[in-house]
Design a binder for these strands. Structure first.
Lengths: 338, 338
DNA sequence: TTGTAAGCGTTATCAT
DNA sequence: ATGATAACGCTTACAA
């Protein structure tokens, strides 16, 4: 059995109260007593029970993150960097990270959020892949549960601190680069249409085409699912068109890996004849053949920052920044160069 | 404010006791009352507070997993599958997964384990990368904290349920395959020597060499760190030997990706002139150039199973199996074929 | 500076 | 079949 505050108090011939306050750094306990208490606590390995403390303080001391499960669940190396970032920052700040998984938009997901809210399991949530009309934002706002988001847009309407990753601008640079390379028939393989990140990346793509006075061709814009398999299928369809595109812009790296495979199968010469690009900046893109042009988003850093923001909000610490802007970096490699 | 059991009791004109028991499925409450209580609970969205329940039941309702941080932390896509497996199984079983990260063997890691034990934060631990003389095993055993392990060995000495992944046998098949291809000078780029998984994989490698009467050459066995960068460095050194090896067996896929890069830089022709193999079966190995021979370990499934074992142990459920054996599958691709 | 006691929201023991 | 009541281990008015 773990040692409790009573054990400690008895051991020291002090009251529970004094022990509690000595450890919590109250000023009204003599320095001598404090030292004795601290020494004994260390000696006996005392740490206050979370459950008891939580109950009393009405604070969970934990932050929650519910990962999206579903078709992309098995395959996204991006997530592990993100989670590690969350994790490390949480450790630094002495809170725990509680995680769970659920399919986006499912009943099960709603239940999970409600469960953690109602059981007071966590003090706040990290929201990572915002959706078009995200019920989570409405729900948490209504219930006054703190949350922080990773968002690709300057979402003034979301009343929460955010890490703003400027995907759109990065996508613009990317497509501009393709146009510079002489491409005209540029296809876009998106993610699920309900994701904000898809909308933003696609918007970047369209804007640049428009600016270059390239007519928008709906045939060249298809919806994927952020997986390798989805990218493969989509690319196959596109490349079999009577007039296939000369460039495939993919919504994320996994999709691009699938596209790469499709292109290889159909004997396209990648880079010269057909350009392919990804998005995320996975380490793995460096080792494909040819190396993949992509946009590096610092997943670990994004995770750390959003966790920091959330923790700050939960504890009402003095707020330095409510918004942290991250500009991902375009990495041009052989897959988009003649 | 979340609704409490008192709110519910008042709403129903019943005592707290009755409400609690109606919901917990006691038999001594009339069916009619039970239905009323259940209906009201749903209507008001009542769920019992975790903190209070934990305090009373002396059960955390959560399982803990501390991920290894360090050089390999940023790069292991394997982990995300494993964690998702843990997560999904935990969700199914209605417990939460609490995670954190710490460098293996660090003071900080010890503190983290102790912290969760002493604060009764979790009911048990998942141990994933066992070490040679793992203090965690000793510590948890001594303190009678349940845990379950993922182990590459039939570790009779570890008094815990385990998922036994037979890496050694898979490695034997792999090296046998290389020898069949005519290789004699086969190098091994390991992981940190303190990891059980390195010992086992290396043992498999050595055994097969011995059986084939190939003298063991210490120059050809080097220690890596499971990262791409480590693999790159190690491979560079090996390939610059006066008599370089004709095959590089890598302890994991990331290491192999690094080796691939080194070999390409030194203009080796991979597959024919130089064989390279990985271990883990990351999706990404399919898209390297040439595609990488590897051993597929079902990370997601391993995560699910070890979580299931732990949960069973924690709740003293009827035990079906204390050991789940998983035989990973050798996948031969072009990187080891002439 | 220290101690007493109430209460956080449950579950469980004992009456009724 | 239902209800008072006492914990669980801690924090925090309030009293001494």
């Amino acid at each position: 059995m773990p040692v409790t505050i009573r054990d400690l108090a008895r051991h020291l011939n002090l009251s529970i109260t004094t022990v509690s306050r000595a450890l919590d750094g109250y000023t009204d306990v003599s320095e001598e007593t404090r030292q004795r208490v601290i020494a004994a606590a260390r000696e006996l390995g005392y740490e206050p029970s979370y459950a008891a403390r939580q109950l009393r303080r009405r604070q969970a001391g934990a932050l929650g993150y519910i990962l999206p499960s579903g078709p992309s669940q098995f395959s996204d190396p991006y997530s592990v960097h993100f989670i590690t970032g969350l994790c490390d920052e949480a450790s630094t700040r002495q809170v725990d990270l509680v995680i769970s998984s659920a399919a986006p938009g499912s009943e099960q997901e709603k239940r999970q959020y409600h469960h953690w809210v109602q059981t007071r399991r966590v003090d706040g949530f990290v929201l990572n892949r915002l959706r078009m009309e995200d019920w989570r934002v409405a729900y948490l706002t209504q219930n006054r549960i703190p949350f922080a988001v990773v968002s690709p847009v300057a979402s003034g309407e979301i009343p929460a601190p955010r890490v703003e990753v400027q995907d759109r601008r990065a996508m613009e640079e990317l497509v501009a680069h393709l146009i510079e390379q002489g491409h005209r028939r540029i296809a876009y393989i998106g993610g699920p249409a309900y994701l904000l990140l898809d909308r933003e990346r696609q918007a970047g793509y369209r804007d640049v085409l428009a600016r270059a006075r390239i007519a928008w061709n709906p045939q060249l814009v298809v919806e994927g699912d952020l997986t390798e398999a989805g990218g493969y299928r989509a690319a196959l369809n596109l490349l079999r068109l009577p007039q296939p595109p000369t460039a495939l812009v993919c919504c994320n790296d996994l999709t691009a890996l699938g596209a790469l495979r499709a292109a290889r199968e159909l004997q396209f010469s990648i880079g010269s004849e057909l350009a392919i690009s990804g998005f995320d900046g996975l380490k793995e893109t460096e080792y494909t053949h040819p190396p993949l042009t992509t946009v590096a988003r610092p997943a670990y850093e994004i995770g750390r920052q959003v966790c920091a923001l959330l923790h700050t909000a939960v504890n009402r610490l003095p707020v330095e920044q409510q918004v942290i802007v991250i500009q991902p970096e375009l990495i041009i490699r052989a897959s988009t160069r003649g």
